[in-house]
């Protein structure tokens, strides 16, 4: 099931080929939903589910899709999956769905999705495509969660909504950094992650 090649497909996007910090895709949603851990995690799971299943569906259909409308077919598949995810969130996780608001709908425009469908699923078998989708979704999710961890910890003093910085620290004059809540700090946090990542992987440096 997991040959060496498949392992590479699954694990590659987690580090060496990460969609966010190496390919710099999907940055916009990484900025928007990472002020708190919970929406970031839900977004990560949603994107992983959508990209994995879209990859499988496109891969199954790959020999039937007429070349002239392949982008349209990809879009329809992605859009349908995203609408289903949105409806499920509205039905079972209403508060999170309210926080994510338009960003669930905007998964459709996440470059990672179309990129994987076009570059991978159209030319590979369903199982490999599924692994590729999961790998890329998780690779995207890891970065989201790391960014959200720092933004929530430093910006609100909480993790998953629970207070982790003790009241005593505030009594001693510690202040939450309101700047961390604003979108630009996500960009700077992502940049710091890229910095650390590149300095550990010399072969990625240009």
């Amino acid at each position: 099931m997991l040959s060496k090649k498949n392992k590479e497909i699954l694990l590659g996007p987690l580090s060496k080929n990460n969609p966010v910090i190496v390919q710099i895709l999907g940055i916009c949603s990484a900025l928007a939903v990472t002020a708190k851990l919970e929406p970031a995690l839900v977004m990560a799971v949603s994107v992983t589910a959508v990209v994995a299943f879209a990859n499988v569906i496109i891969s199954l259909l790959r020999n039937t899709i007429p070349n002239s409308i392949r982008i349209i077919v990809q879009l329809v598949v992605v859009a349908a999956l995203v609408i289903i995810v949105d409806q499920v969130l509205k039905a079972y996780m209403y508060q999170v769905s309210k926080q994510l608001s338009v960003f669930v709908g905007l998964i459709i425009t996440n470059c990672i999705l179309m990129g994987r469908l076009e570059a991978f699923a159209l030319s590979h078998k369903p199982w490999e495509s599924f692994l590729d989708g999961v790998g890329n979704g998780v690779g995207y999710g890891i970065i989201l969660v790391i960014v959200a961890f720092f933004r929530e910890l430093l910006g609100s003093g909480t993790l998953f909504g629970y207070q982790v910085i003790p009241q005593q620290m505030y009594d001693w004059g510690y202040q939450n950094n309101g700047l961390m809540i604003l979108p630009p700090m996500a960009l700077i946090t992502v940049a710091c992650i890229i910095w650390v990542h590149r300095s550990r992987n010399k072969d990625l440096q240009q």
Partner: peptide
């Protein structure tokens, strides 16, 4: 597919 999903989830929403 979408119509079924929308109708099925409507009460909860």
């Amino acid at each position: 597919i979408l119509a079924f999903a929308a109708i099925g989830l409507k009460p909860a929403q």
